[in-house]
Write a protein that binds this DNA or RNA. Structure first.
Lengths: 356, 356
DNA sequence: CTGAAAGCGCTTACAG
DNA sequence: CTGAAAGCGCTTACAG
C-alpha cells in the first residue's frame, strides 16, 4: 500500500520526529510556531528541520487545513500576448509578492494554453483546489470566468472591469481620466480630428477606452466619428497597420491616441516611410508606459504608472476579499480605478490652426 | 475535527458516490479510466461528475499518489528581467504545454521574488512538493540550484548550460554557431575590429557567448581585444550605453554583435544622435529575435528561432529524464544545442576597405 | 507541555 | 465488476 516515491532526499515529519525521539504532533506544533511548546524542544526541532532540510509536504498540509496558501494568477499565452511581449504580468508580480509575503502566501502563474478554452481551464484549476484564490486578467466584455468564480465561491479579483455579473472585485486602469486628459490636451492645441486605436478582441478595455474617448470628445463639442476608431493588434505590427489606415482616411486626422505605447514603434516607421513626421504632421499620444518606447524619436507623450504599486493594490484588494485576511485590510474596498500620470513628450508638441 | 472550508460548490468524491449510491472506490476507478468497471456504471459516473462539476481534489490525489502532475517553470522577476520585457517565458510556454498536454501534466510558472535568494526559493518549492519536476532558467555560471536539484533527486532541466555539476539535463542556444557565423560574415566584409556586448551579470550565457566569439575571431586570425567586450544590461537602455562606450573607444570598432536584439533600439538612437549611421558607418548584428526590433531602420541582421519549437524540445528533454515518461521518448538525450537561423538585414550590408 | 488518535480526499491492493 | 479498508503526510482538538 506504500506509494511509490520515497526515493526523495527530503523526508516526512515522521522521520524527523523519530530522529528527535518525540511525537509528530509536537514537531508539527513546534514548526508552526504554536504556543505551549517548550522553548528548548522548539529549538531542537527547528535545528533538526534546518539540518535535514525538512519542509512540510504541501499536499498533506493542504488536505488537512483545507487551504493551499497559494494564490493563482491566470495568464493567457496566446500568440498575440506573446508578440506583445507584455511585461505587465512580470511587472505587477513584484508588487503582488510583496503583498503576499506578509501572509506567507505564494504566487503561482497559471498559463492557460492557447488551444484550451480559458473558462474550462480555470474551472479545472479551481476544482482541483490548487489555489486559494485567483487573479484573472485580460477581462472580457462578457466574461464567463467571472460567473464561474462567483458560483464556485472562490475568492478572486479581475484585472479589468466587465459587464458580467453585478458586483465583484476588480481593479482597472483609469481609462476615463486618460481619455479626458489626452483629448483635452489635443483640443487645446487645435486638434478636432482625433483618431484612436482599439484592440480587435473582445477584451473589455477596448470598449471602455473608446467609450471614454467618445464622451471626452462630446464634452468638447466634437462629434464622434466611428471611422476614426482604428481596430488593430496592440503591437508594433498593429501600429504599422494603424498608420496605414490613418493615411488612407479622407479628411485625415491630425492626432491619434494609441491604446498601447508599443504601437508607436510601428506607427512611427510607417509614417516616416510616407514622409510624415510624428510630432509635426501628426500628434501622437500613447497609453501605458512601456520602457522600450522611451527611445522613440520624437519622444512619445504618454501615460505612465508604476506596475509595482499596481501589483500591491491588486494584492491588497484581493486579500481584503478573502475571509482569512480581511481583518488585515479593514478599509480595503472591492474596486479600484488606478490613475496614470501624463508624461509630456515631443510627439504632440505642436499647435495647428483651427481651420486645418 | 472537520476542517473549515466546505462552503465550496465543488464537493468531494464521497458526495458524488452517495449521489450515485455506489462506493467511492468505484467512482474513482470509473473517473480514472481503469478497466474492470462496468461500462454503464462508468457512463453514469462520468455524467454525474460532469453535471456536478466534480474534479478530484489535487491535494488528496497528490498525497495518495506521491506525484502532483505539475511541472514548475521557475522564472525570475528581477527588475532587469521585467525591463527587458522578455517574451521568452511566454514564448516557450506554448511549446511546453503542447508537449505536457499529452501526459495531462500542467505547467505552472513559479516567479521567484526579487528580494528572495533564488536557491532558497527553489528549495522551499521543491521541499513542499508542489511540482513533480522543475525547469529553471537564467542559468548562472556557477548555479547552486543545480546541485540542490540533483541532491533532491527531483527531475529538472536547465535552460542554459552551467559549470556547476558534471552531467545534468540542459537545453541551450547555439552560441558557438551564432558567434562563428556573425564573425565570418563581418570578416568577409572587411571588418577586423568587431565589438560584442555581454550582460554584466553572472548568467552563463554571457560567458559562453564571449568565449565563442573569441574562438571565432582567433580562427580568422584576429586577436581578441578585451576592450571590445562591452558589459551592459540587455535592454534598450543597455544598447544606448553600449553605443556610448563604443563611441569613446579609440580605434573605434566597425562592427558590433549584440547579445540581445532589443538593445539595437537604444544603440541606433545613440548612434543617430552622433550622426553615425548603423548599416553604413557601423555594422550591427543582433541575436535572438524580438518582434519589436523588426521595425528598426535600417532593418537588423539577426539570428532567429522558433520559441514554440524550443519549448517542445525543452519539454521532451525534461520528460525523457522523468522515470514515469521516459518510455515515451526513447531517444531523448540529456542535452540539446538549439540552432538559430540567420536573417539578413541592412544593418551590416556594406563592405569596408581592409585598411580601415 | 506532550502524546495518541482522528481525519482531510483520494487511489488502490485485496477480498468477494 | 464492486465494496470495504488502508494509508499517503499533515494538523489539531483532546486527554493527561
Amino acid at each position: 500500500m506504500r506509494s511509490k516515491g520515497k526515493a526523495s532526499a527530503t523526508r516526512g515529519i515522521r522521520q524527523l520526529a523519530e530522529h528527535l525521539d518525540i511525537s509528530i504532533g509536537t514537531v508539527s506544533r513546534a514548526l508552526n510556531g504554536k504556543p505551549d511548546v517548550n522553548e528548548e524542544t522548539r529549538r531542537r526541532v527547528l535545528a533538526a528541520a534546518e539540518e535535514l532540510g525538512y519542509v512540510a509536504n504541501q499536499s498533506g498540509r493542504s488536505l488537512r487545513q483545507g487551504e493551499t496558501k497559494v494564490i493563482g494568477f491566470m495568464i493567457e499565452s496566446s500568440q498575440e500576448v506573446v508578440e506583445n511581449a507584455d511585461n505587465f504580468f512580470l511587472g505587477v508580480t513584484s508588487g503582488l509578492q510583496h503583498c503576499f509575503a506578509r501572509h506567507k502566501l505564494d504566487l503561482l502563474m497559471l498559463p492557460c494554453p492557447a488551444d484550451e478554452d480559458s473558462c474550462e481551464y480555470l474551472k479545472r484549476m479551481v476544482a482541483r483546489r490548487i489555489v486559494d484564490a485567483m487573479i484573472i486578467s485580460n477581462t472580457q466584455r462578457i466574461d464567463r470566468r467571472i460567473d464561474l468564480l462567483l458560483r464556485a465561491k472562490i475568492p478572486f479579483l479581475a484585472v479589468g472591469r466587465s459587464l458580467s455579473a453585478g458586483n465583484f472585485p476588480w481593479v482597472d486602469l483609469d481609462f476615463e481620466g486618460v481619455a479626458e486628459r489626452a483629448v483635452e490636451r489635443l483640443v487645446a492645441r487645435g486638434h478636432r480630428r482625433i483618431a484612436i486605436t482599439a484592440p480587435s478582441t473582445e477584451a473589455n478595455l477596448g470598449y471602455v477606452f473608446v467609450d471614454s474617448y467618445r464622451r471626452a470628445l462630446e464634452r468638447h463639442g466634437i462629434r464622434f466619428d466611428p471611422l476614426l476608431v482604428i481596430r488593430v493588434k496592440s503591437s508594433e505590427q498593429g501600429g504599422y497597420r494603424a498608420a496605414q489606415e490613418l493615411l488612407q482616411l479622407e479628411d485625415r486626422p491630425t492626432a491619434v491616441i494609441l491604446i498601447y505605447e508599443i504601437m508607436a514603434i510601428g506607427l512611427y516607421r510607417r509614417l516616416t516611410e510616407s514622409g510624415i513626421l510624428p510630432g509635426r504632421d501628426l500628434a501622437v499620444i500613447g497609453f501605458r508606459d512601456a520602457p522600450r518606447a522611451r527611445f522613440l524619436q520624437p519622444s512619445l507623450s504618454c501615460f505612465r504608472m508604476s506596475l509595482h504599486d499596481l501589483g500591491i493594490a491588486i494584492g491588497q484588494t484581493l486579500l481584503s476579499n478573502m475571509p482569512a485576511y480581511r481583518a488585515f485590510y479593514p478599509d480595503g474596498g472591492r474596486n479600484i480605478i488606478w490613475p496614470l500620470e501624463l508624461v509630456s513628450g515631443e510627439s504632440d508638441a505642436f499647435e495647428i490652426g483651427a481651420l486645418t
